[in-house]
Write a protein that binds this DNA or RNA. Structure first.
Lengths: 216, 216, 216, 216
DNA sequence: TATGAATGAGACTTCATTCAT
DNA sequence: AATGAATGAAGTCTCATTCAT
């Protein structure tokens, strides 16, 4: 720690502090995994992007897989946590909350590198079972539970009609996952797809389908 | 002559099967591409699966990319052609035709290795632009045109209400693509997803949304 | 032989006669070896050029090396034999004979595919010792002996001054070998080299150097 | 710590030698290219010769072609540069300079592995056009220009008679190139060729031919 | 005799991971 | 803590030669 004393208090631009290393690596890893996918990502590229050497990656992360899990933990899970929190503090209608959550997801996930992680995971799950299990348990199922609970609440509150909340949660989430996938897949070759329109129509259908007053 | 006797009935180092080889290789390639994806597929594995040597693959296909394109031409395009033909010979309602087409797709694509090709392509398009363009032009766009025309016909015939046929085609196809993706992605880790139910509900929503008499 | 009877006398264009096969193969081999070299020549290419299958090559020639040796025997050795014959029947001066021999060599070797064989052999001798020995003994040394004898004769006849006939033979031959090499090497990239001028100047120097009356 | 003791003094799997590696690899490459030629050189062999793994080659050189170009730059070009420098600092006669340059070339090129590069290039130019162009521009043409300028200077100084300096440069260089070729071609099979005598006679002829006072 | 499908060793090259420094 | 040189297994693709037909 001795050598850090001179850094105390001062922001030392020319020598990044050790504490920042993992974050820098994770940011680089997010960017690279997101654009190239898991298998096609070269750790040399991550290292270069992070401004460290390849060896340094292994000081902080045991392996490529561990690095990916860390990326998920660092960037994906907080998104879910934030949504959960927001739900807990929500006082308005569930319907409005869900609209807002989708909007935020579009801004914070779909339009950022995070959507690349979703796509990557779906794309390569079958080749990396460990990653698949990790992602399924920590991201997919948790999100599904969260949305399902929201819907249950909506039903209890009389906003939504009786329905299978698990299934409804999937109906809500599937178009989101799909748009993330498409965004990083054929969309660049096929500019005719308007993701926002697609999502807003789906939201519309979803809400109409689940609302108690849908046929009034 | 003595040494030839031992060959009688024995396993030869190889057997001549000009006619069947390409089909055998394509079948093996379909299986492997479908389950592993493009990049992760090793030609050695395809060769083993086909019961030939690595070199033999190159007698029939110029490269890994060419092999994949041949798989698409051999297995995917005929599916589309068949659907197009069926549409041409259709005498009943467009609505019933679309129901039938979806059913057939479930049996012939979703529940076979073919869906793995769809998933593979979506998963790896960004890493293999040549393949992406090929697939987009020959499969995606052709299918979209086909379905869009079907919907236009339905509108002309008064079955469907006025709507953007391109968008409607996407609405019809997207859940199919998604289910193919999921099937080969996290579904094996997440047995709670009933694809058939998902698809039938989506079909229901789609048809209700597009029918002229839906809310009359 | 039975099936050849029907061919008797008639030139049957649509079915080349067995007797012609080896010659066709040799011609194709000459062409390919000459332009590509030994190692870079693919037997598939030779076969295609000859209009036969790869397997057929092995009916007539044991291996790639044997095929090359046959090319030398078929096309190169006769050139030497012809020169030897011509020398035997020569009645004029040795000097004029050598001029004529060089002229003929330019027409029949340098400007044909045969020069490619010379170059090829020089280029790849070290990688194919068997070929090297074969070529050295059957072509190089025989030619050297021939020219040396010619020079000895010239000395005996009083046309040439006393000198080491072996060395003089080399002095005569080296520029020929060099021009054959260059022709198939950097000449195509370096069009400023006029081979004919180079050779005629060398011939001039050689004859002046060896003539009895050179300083008269 | 116990397990580290065994490493003391032991043969490590590898040793870190950033500084020396490129030189070691280049030396190994020179040796191998020189004796086997470009196509027949296996990178595995170069690696073994250099005492490194195949992968290590790629840390320093992008490809086999790049490695060869580096060999030329490292070993061939400095020879030319040295000769050019020597010419610049020369105070004596051009004739004596050219004699000295040839002598040095015999020692530093002909009798070393460098002559193998000359031969290799001539031998394989037609199969590797990129290499051919590179070599022609950087070695052949530069050398020709250098010698031609020397001859022009000799003419200006009154040492040499009026003549085409380009052609004379070729006349000077051609026997050198030829002896390099022969050295690595049939010479090992044909010990009767005395390269030094060949070269000295050619030098003699060349100087006599070009000297102003040759026949005075 | 003729074929050409089939082989398999071996070429160049890539990259996650290790470890001496 | 940090480096980055080094590894080596594994990938795609080539081609002389073999042999069932």
């Amino acid at each position: 720690m001795g050598e850090l004393i001179s850094n105390t208090g001062a922001t030392c631009r020319w020598r990044r502090r050790k504490e920042e290393r993992p974050a820098e690596i994770l940011a680089a890893a997010l960017k690279t995994f997101s654009s190239k996918g898991f298998a096609a990502t070269k750790l040399a590229e991550v290292a270069k992007e992070a401004g460290v050497s390849k060896g340094t990656l292994y000081l902080y992360f045991e392996s490529k897989e561990a690095l990916f899990k860390a990326v998920v933990s660092e960037f994906v899970l907080p998104q879910i946590a934030r949504a959960e929190e927001q739900a807990q503090q929500n006082t308005g209608s569930i319907k409005l909350l869900m609209i807002k959550l989708l909007e935020q997801w579009q801004i914070n996930v779909l339009e950022t590198e995070l959507s690349g992680i979703t796509k990557m995971m779906i794309a390569e799950a079958s080749n990396f079972p460990d990653l698949a299990t990790f992602y399924l348990e920590n991201v997919i199922q948790r999100t599904r539970r969260f949305v399902a609970n929201l819907i249950k609440l909506g039903i209890e509150k009389g906003e939504f009609r009786q329905c299978d909340s698990d299934y409804a949660a999937r109906a809500f989430l599937t178009p989101m996952v799909f748009s993330a996938i498409w965004q990083h897949s054929l969309a660049p070759f096929d500019d005719s797809y308007d993701m926002n329109e697609y999502l807003s129509i789906h939201l519309d259908i979803f809400l109409r389908g689940i609302s108690k007053d849908s046929f009034e």
